[in-house]
Amino acid sequence: MSIKVDNVSFTYMKKTPFQVNALKNISFEIKDGDFVGIVGHTGSGKSTLIQIISGLLKEYEGNVVIDGIDYNDKKADRTRLRRLVGVVFQYPEYQLFEETVEKDIAFGPKKLGLDEKEAEERVKVAMDLVGLDYDMYRDVSPFQLSGGQKRKVAIAGVLAMEPQILILDEPIAGLDPQGRENFLELIKSLNECGMTILMVSHNMDNLVEYAKRIIVLKDGELFMDGTPAEVFADKEKVAEASLNLPEVASFCDRLREKGFDVPDSIIRYEQLKDYIISTVGGSYDD
């Protein structure tokens, strides 16, 4: 499902002294099955952008076209759009409200007009995806679960709507290391099954490991756009956007200062590890 953002601008508090141009003439296209990281400092407009792509902010200028359907089109099929795009907000566990895990996850599917039986099927699949046992947890109150489990329920609630595009805003904030890794692996596997992923994150280290493309926003403008290796190769621009370099990239720089000839393509941890080991003569034989 492709996403086409065409010349989009957005202004908060229009025509008041408090006017803020949150987005200025943003255009890009995301192809089906991509994994895109959206980064930028606080106030760069990234959360405004994802709210527009999710269809939650309406009074913007320009066009956003999802799978050929324009949000601005009065005749657009809203239900279909809602079905296509799923959104996981920061701390999604704060959206839980039903008495049982099953009911909460079924909320979205039912709003799409599915009947009991179809919804139940969806719940089963979604719980399986996030790694919650259906029989064990279906009747449990979501409020009795641990923080990590609550988050799984919240995400299952979005996945049960079977979106083709999944938009995530800082999805791993507050999770412990194990939880973070499990979660990112889940997103990766959803992406491998063909789901288009848009992820906003402050964590560059995670993004370089998982994203195929990175879009950098700065003061409401599209500032950089490319593969993780391309984006983080331009150190000056990255600093200008007040972003941190990922650990691997900054370590590569330090190695270069020490006279190592580190290729520009190295951006992920595994690549760096292999490079160092082959340079210093380690072997994987044993």
Partner: peptide, 8 residues
């Protein structure tokens, strides 16, 4: 916003 995204 979160609930709207879920169809509420």
């Amino acid at each position: 916003k979160a609930q709207t995204a879920r169809g509420a």
